[in-house]
């Protein structure tokens, strides 16, 4: 009973690309020691998500078999829990805390700024699939409110401005400009801020 499940499924690396058969057989291996009606399905789901980064559709039938139930019940279970994913995460997932301490410190403004800057809605990926904004629940680290989390690092207290700067830092360096300085009409060269590069969040 002490086969310790890892806790890292929420921050796991993205799914490895394996074929359907690979997913099914690997899933079967991962849950081979688990029993039905023993409060163990969640343990199995966590292991699968840790392995693949999400719960692949191919795993559902294998789970149903192991837990002596129907694929519909398994899928309904997966779908029910917000920490379980049915699609692979984007490359860069920015987590936005939805808690009340953050709310009272302008987390809504931060959310709107991030949606605009990253080009994605909450719990959805950007059009190029590179970014995802994800709503997470309060875990009581309210000293950092309003906070963002990125790849396991917590950032806060944020401002809308620092959130925008962080989002810009996630974007790759712009293509080298074509030699043709843009004019905005009154003779001035456009002063649009160049996005900075760098992967590391500016954790406080």
């Amino acid at each position: 009973m002490f086969s310790q499940a890892s806790h890292n499924s929420r921050t796991s690396v993205r799914g490895t690309s394996v074929g359907d058969v690979g997913v099914a057989s690997r899933t079967a291996e991962l849950i081979s020691d688990l029993k039905a009606d023993a409060a163990e399905m969640l343990k199995g789901l966590h292991r699968i998500q840790h392995e693949f980064g999400y719960i692949p559709g191919e795993a559902v039938a294998v789970l149903a078999d192991r837990f002596k139930t129907s694929p519909a019940i398994v899928f309904g279970t997966v779908d029910f829990y917000s920490e379980l994913r049915t699609t692979p995460p984007a490359e860069k997932v920015v987590e936005w805390c939805s808690g009340p301490a953050c709310l009272f410190k302008n987390s809504s403004g931060i959310r709107r700024a991030l949606q605009a800057q990253l080009g994605c809605e909450m719990n959805a990926a950007s059009a190029d699939g590179q970014f995802e904004l994800r709503l997470v629940q309060c875990d009581g680290t309210c000293k950092l409110a309003p906070q963002l989390r990125y790849r396991g690092a917590y950032m806060g207290p944020m401002t809308a401005a620092s959130a925008i700067e962080f989002a810009r830092s996630l974007k790759p360096a712009p293509e080298p400009p074509i030699e043709e300085p843009e004019s905005d009409g009154d003779g001035e060269v456009s002063t649009e801020a160049a996005p900075t590069t760098g992967e590391e969040p500016q954790s406080e």
Binding site: A5, H7, L42, K43, L45, Y81, S82, E83, Q137
Partner: peptide, 12 residues
């Protein structure tokens, strides 16, 4: 008496 820890998956 057996004691077991179950980890949830995100549901209020």
């Amino acid at each position: 008496f057996e004691v077991e820890v179950v980890r949830g998956a995100g549901s209020y």
